[in-house]
């Protein structure tokens, strides 16, 4: 039984979502400890994106409750939107605007003090300086991802929600992004919730992993703990065990 932690950055209780009678998320509960990196792990259709959508307030739950930074997302979402941010492959930045113009717009939307200073800081940190005056649509995939990450960090968010942040990136760029996220969490004490099906990424970054399948949480724990529990050598093998109903979580619902 999950014991809710009232100091958690994200608190999800008995959350469900059905679309036309089909359950996308089915009664899940979890919390994300402040200052941690938590991975939502699962295959396609596991319910990760819908869960993130409900945490962001873009999708209304069929049942259950989400609390973010101590505020109920259903009733008090606008009180915390300037303290969180997100990056998702389902959202893009306007292609005709330059990287700098995009960041200026979002700095104003988030009410960032000293916006130009923050933009320069992000340009340096994310190695975007040479591309700042280039239209976003003319950036490479890696540069676009770094720009999207700069947008996600424009307000120095206390909570960062990332949906497949390194999807379609080459290994070098993906590794660079992971290092940056890890540094941000360590240096700022930020909380990061990461939806991914990239096992090495989750294994490297996350303190806690929540394994989802068919809209339910089928297991959870630290990466090393899960690997040991399943008697495997890496998280990918654990993921395959879960996906194929083998091993520790087979037939068990820990939600």
């Amino acid at each position: 039984m999950l014991v809710p932690d009232p100091s958690a950055a994200v608190l999800v209780e008995d959350l469900s979502k059905s679309f036309r009678g089909v359950a996308a998320v089915n009664g899940i509960s979890f919390h994300v400890a402040a200052g941690s990196i938590t991975g939502l792990l699962g295959g396609n259709g596991a319910g990760k994106t819908t869960t993130i959508g409900m945490i962001l307030g873009l999708v209304t739950p069929s049942a259950g409750r989400v609390s973010v930074l101590g505020h109920d997302i259903a009733t008090d979402r606008h009180a915390i939107l300037h303290r969180i941010n997100f990056q998702s492959p389902y959202a893009d930045l306007p292609h005709r605007l330059t990287a700098r113009q995009n960041l200026r717009v979002f700095a104003r939307l988030y009410g960032v003090p000293d916006a130009e200073g923050r933009i320069e800081e992000l340009a340096v940190n994310l190695d975007l300086t040479a591309f700042m005056d280039r239209p976003a649509g003319r950036l490479s995939a890696g540069q676009k991802t770094r720009l999207a990450l700069a947008k996600a960090m424009i307000n120095s968010p206390e909570l960062l929600l990332l949906d497949e942040p390194t999807a379609s990136l080459d290994p070098d760029t993906a590794d660079w992004i992971r290092s940056h996220l890890d540094d941000y969490r360590r240096d700022r004490g930020a909380t990061i919730l990461l939806a991914s099906h990239n096992m090495p990424e989750v294994e490297r970054l996350c303190d806690q992993v929540i394994l989802m399948k068919d809209g339910r949480i089928v297991d959870r724990g630290g990466p090393a703990d899960l690997i040991a529990r399943y008697g495997r050598t890496d998280l990918e093998e654990v993921f395959l065990d879960v996906a194929r109903n083998r091993g520790a979580a087979a037939g068990r619902d820990v939600a």
Binding site: L58, L81, F86, Y90, A91, F106
Partner: peptide, 14 residues
């Protein structure tokens, strides 16, 4: 068209 709606709706913009 620019798939920016998610960014806009997730920002503090009411």
């Amino acid at each position: 068209w620019s798939r920016n709606v998610g960014n806009i709706l997730m920002s503090p913009l009411r």
